[in-house]
């Protein structure tokens, strides 16, 4: 598209007419979305898409908002596709098709929208997922943060037994697929204009997860540590499964850049969002094989702890000095401390 700038509008920014149902909107859909997502279902220009799926199907939806829209290592488009295909992967499913909804703010430069859409198309192609239907709304200037994206996905469950919290039991090994906290810190640094050599980890993890199933690893449960980070995910699973968890703090991989920014801002990296990582609960005998599979794919996974019988819902962190603490759910978002 770059050789033909802005073919889809006489405007260089989003105007209310882009959501108005008339010619301006049709051009946006045809010249931008249909072209970029290049899918026969979209080309039908119908109210929805027809899909043919086999076996059990997983479905998920997620809304995305991020400031800034573009950050080192990604953008809201990559985030929106990765988030939903990753949620399907967490269900043991191979992503098949996505529906995409945009809420555009009047005044958003169309070149930015074009970049976001191209990034979504590229990310979906990485995992072989189709973008088959969508919707666009425009809100007045000041009523949105540039663009909100909602993605809904369906996929075919390929896991022999769909991973879920109820399959977790004491003794299971807890693995994390790579260093934690990079997305959250990269976005925070971009927002606060801190100079840090760090990129978001926003990426699909679908191929890694499918590789675990292909290798026959008994994956009991999967969860991607997005909002609330690693610590919150462990708490959620421990609560739902009615088990406890013990984690060794030094085993959880954190890049020094992430640790340093968190230190300066008074944040705990274990609560900072990742967008291209997952936490896996696997049968104890399969932990080494799972690590080997992920390493062979170029990852840097780690075995960080194990599931214990109780107390149920409590995650205990063994610190580097031998002391312990409860890794609790936060009451809300982490806020920088006074001193």
């Amino acid at each position: 598209m770059s050789e033909c700038p802005l073919p889809f509008s006489d405007y260089d920014r989003v105007v209310l007419a882009h959501g108005g149902g008339g010619r301006v909107m049709l051009r946006l859909i045809e010249d931008l979305f249909v072209r970029a997502f290049a899918d026969p279902a979209l080309a039908l220009a119908h109210d929805g898409a027809f899909l043919r799926l086999a076996g059990p199907v997983a479905m998920t939806t997620d809304a995305f908002t991020v400031k800034p829209l573009f950050f080192p290592g990604g953008d809201i488009g990559r985030l929106a596709v990765s988030g939903t295909v990753n949620d399907l992967a967490m269900c043991g499913a191979r992503p098949h098709a996505l529906a995409v909804s945009f809420v555009l703010e009047e005044g958003l430069p169309l070149v930015e929208l074009e970049r976001i859409v191209a990034s979504m198309a590229a990310t979906a192609r990485e995992v072989g997922a189709r973008i088959v239907t969508g919707d666009t709304k425009v809100v007045e200037r000041g009523k949105g943060d540039g663009v909100f994206v909602t993605t809904t996905g369906v996929g075919e469950v390929v896991a022999p037994e769909a991973p879920r919290p109820s399959r977790v039991r004491p003794g299971d090994a807890i693995l994390v697929s790579g260093p934690v906290g990079e997305h959250g810190v990269a976005v925070m640094a971009a927002r606060e204009r801190l100079e840090v050599d760090l990129a978001s980890d926003a990426a699909p993890v679908v191929a890694d997860v499918l590789a675990l199933f292909a290798a026959g690893v008994d994956v009991r449960c999967l969860r991607d540590p997005t909002r609330g980070g690693f610590a919150s995910v462990l708490n959620e699973i421990a609560r739902t499964a009615g088990v406890g968890a013990r984690v060794t703090e030094t085993a959880v991989p954190v890049r020094p850049e992430v640790a340093d920014v968190c230190e300066l801002l008074g944040l705990d990296p274990l609560y900072v969002a990742c967008e291209g990582r997952f936490v896996a609960f696997v049968a104890p005998g399969d932990a080494d094989r799972a690590l080997a599979v992920l390493r062979a794919r170029g990852g840097a996974p780690a075995r960080v702890g194990e599931v214990v019988a109780g107390p149920p819902g409590v995650v205990v962190l063994e610190g580097p000095l031998g002391g312990e603490r409860v890794l609790d759910l936060l009451s809300g978002e982490q806020l920088p401390r006074i001193c």
């Binding site: 610190g319 580097p320 000095l321 031998g322 002391g323 312990e324 603490r325």
Partner: peptide, 8 residues
């Protein structure tokens, strides 16, 4: 609290 120093 964070480093569990009371345990130590």
């Amino acid at each position: 609290a964070r480093f569990g120093i009371e345990d130590l």
